[in-house]
């Protein structure tokens, strides 16, 4: 595994893939702010490798009530993507999406979940479109799944597809913030390391 990560980092450095990912993250933020109808700010995206056993600590306490909108990415850059917020922030995000005053949404029913699912779908689609436009990597998201549970339980879902082959997760991460209502949303894209290497090499003619 570590050899693969080193190789990937090498490719990232040589081909300025980090700038590319920053551009794609920026586009994802643009997609979400268009949906919300108000500007959101975005943290500087980071590419990180995190040991699977530590991935929960990476976000917060393992029993924290969280909401995750999870999508698989299929195509030339296979992997996973997840939009995550604490339950409180997710309720605020629903208020924003529905154009309601803060504090209106108190629980996540079908309507609220589908609003969150749509936000996840749109964010990931904007991310993937930016990649497609820049380097021609064509990928598409699966239908979104909304999970409301302990952070540890959600992290298990994210770690499972990679765990058979790796002890670390490769995460492209950022946070979106809606400044007026301070809604914080984590956005992660997790390319499958081995396949991504091949695909990046193919796309860049290595």
């Amino acid at each position: 595994m570590s050899e693969q990560v080193v190789l990937l980092n090498d490719l990232v450095a040589r081909h300025q893939t980090d700038e590319l990912l920053a551009l794609a993250m920026d586009n994802a933020a643009r997609g979400l702010s268009e949906m919300l109808g108000r500007p959101i700010t975005i943290d500087v995206p980071r590419v990180q490798t995190v040991p699977i056993s530590r991935v929960t600590d990476h976000v917060g306490g393992p029993e924290t009530d969280m909401v995750g909108v999870y999508l698989l990415i299929e195509g030339e850059m296979p992997g996973q993507a997840i939009l995550m917020a604490t339950l409180e922030d997710a309720l605020r995000l629903v208020d924003l999406l529905m154009g309601e005053p803060e504090g209106t949404t108190r629980e996540l029913g079908d309507l609220e979940r589908s609003a969150l699912a749509e936000a996840g779908n749109l964010t990931v689609s904007f991310f993937l479109n930016a990649l497609a436009n820049s380097i021609g990597l064509s990928s598409r998201p699966s239908p979104p799944a909304v999970m409301v549970d302990m952070l540890g339980a959600i992290m298990g879902v994210v770690a499972a597809p990679v765990a058979a082959f790796a002890d670390e997760l490769l995460i492209v991460e950022t946070a979106f913030k809606e400044p007026h209502r301070t809604v914080n949303v984590h956005f992660w894209v997790l390319p499958y390391p081995v396949m991504t290497l091949d695909q990046v090499a193919l796309a860049t003619g290595d």
């Binding site: 699977i52 056993s53 530590r54 991935v55 306490g61 339980a153 298990g156």
Partner: peptide, 23 residues
């Protein structure tokens, strides 16, 4: 944590797996 095992015979120890989902 995920992917870990702990064994203990220390009576003061409490072992906890937090936030098990599909695990």
């Amino acid at each position: 944590s995920i992917g870990e095992m702990i064994v203990s015979s220390n009576p003061d120890d409490v072992l906890v797996a937090y936030g098990l989902g599909s695990c």
